[in-house]
Computed example of a mutant assay.
Amino acid sequence: MTDQVVKSLTDPSFLIALLVAIAVFATVFTVLPSLSGNPLKGRMKAVALERDELRAKQRMRLAAEADRRHKGLREQQSIGMRNIVERLDLRRALVDEATLNKLKIAGFRGQNPLTRFLFFRLVLPFVGLMLGILYIFVLGAFPDKPFLMKVFICIVLAYAGFYAPVLYVNNRATKRKQSIQAAWPDALDLLLICVESGMSVESALRKVADEIGAQSVDLAEEFVLTNAELSYLTERRQAYENLAGRTGLDSVKSITQALIQAERYGTPVAHALRVLAAESRDMRMNAAEKKAAALPPKLTVPMILFFLPVLFAVILGPAGMQISERGLMGDKQQSSSE
């Protein structure tokens, strides 16, 4: 057997076939990766295509949202609502400068939202009162309560209906301000890059509006409106002041003041934007640190109510079981001795 193996290894034809097989294997092993292509390039290409697709979808969504809001703000007023509001002169009785500013901050601009706001403030108290009367006196709710208490509940429902539009507008304004505030530092960074690259303020606002829409549609809408106002208003200062008034944020107001000074005195905008962008990032970091610092006190009560009883049960459970077993063993020994 050994002689046959040695004879095969020394055979020239066998050695040639072995070398050819090794060469073919090395060639295939070398050529296959090049045929499959660079995986990194393929992956980067796939990521780039996916990013472009997501950006295109986001732009389509932003355009549809802006078109929907534009149509909602420009639609024809209801004749009945307008007549009721004008006949009762509700604007003089219920509208002041703070109410108008709150509506602007909430994203409601124009006369149509104001008319609806006043109409619902007039109608909802009667709706709440009728629902309270129907629920309490017709359906017989709260039978054990006295008559004055039932009347008081109906009055409270009417009062809640009167302030329901105000609460809705305040909630909408708060959410909109939070959305703008969250995306504002990134928008400032993008605006700074565009201005330093030589773009005008109008082009920079338009570019930032296209890019920031993925984070905040409200901020992108404000930039588009500001860009439009810069085009047709006689004073550019008014466009910047309108931006600050529609957002209601101090950080936006400081940026508008810097832009107004740059327009008036010809000072460079890039330096002011750089400083204000750094301040906005610091403010966002401070807000995050404040939330993180407030987390331990908020977790104290849940830990006391839910975690500590379980922890005490896990720690003291085995000891209690051992004590109970020893007590049973002692009782058995005492009964056996008796």
Rank of each mutant, 00 (worst) to 15 (best):
D3F: 15
K7P: 01
L9Y: 11
V24L: 09
F25D: 15
V28R: 13
F29R: 15
V31E: 03
L32I: 07
L35K: 13
N38L: 03
L40N: 10
G42I: 06
G42S: 05
M44K: 05
M44C: 00
M44L: 07
L49A: 15
L54W: 09
K57N: 11
R59M: 04
R61G: 08
L62N: 11
L62D: 11
L62A: 15
E65C: 01
L73K: 03
E75H: 08
I79Q: 13
I79W: 13
N83L: 11
E86H: 02
R87E: 01
L90M: 06
A93M: 12
L94D: 15
A98T: 07
T99N: 03
T99D: 05
K102T: 00
L103M: 06
A106M: 00
G110K: 04
Q111N: 14
Q111I: 14
L114C: 07
L114P: 02
F117L: 07
R121Q: 02
V123D: 02
V127R: 03
L129F: 12
M130W: 00
L131P: 00
I133V: 07
I136V: 06
L139V: 08
F142N: 01
F152M: 09
I153H: 04
F162D: 10
T174I: 12
T174N: 10
K175A: 08
A187C: 15
L191T: 10
G198L: 03
S200G: 01
V201E: 05
I212S: 08
A214V: 15
E222S: 12
F223W: 12
T226E: 04
T226P: 00
E229C: 04
L233H: 02
E235H: 15
E235M: 15
A239S: 09
E241I: 11
E241A: 13
N242F: 08
N242G: 11
G245P: 03
G248P: 02
G248C: 05
G248T: 05
L249M: 02
S251G: 05
K253I: 00
S254Q: 12
I255V: 06
Q261K: 12
A262P: 01
E263C: 08
E263D: 14
G266V: 03
R274V: 05
L276N: 01
A277H: 00
A278N: 00
S280Y: 00
D282P: 01
N286L: 14
A294G: 13
L295V: 00
V301F: 09
V301E: 09
P309I: 08
A313K: 10
Q322T: 11
E325C: 12
K332G: 04
Q333S: 04
Q333N: 04
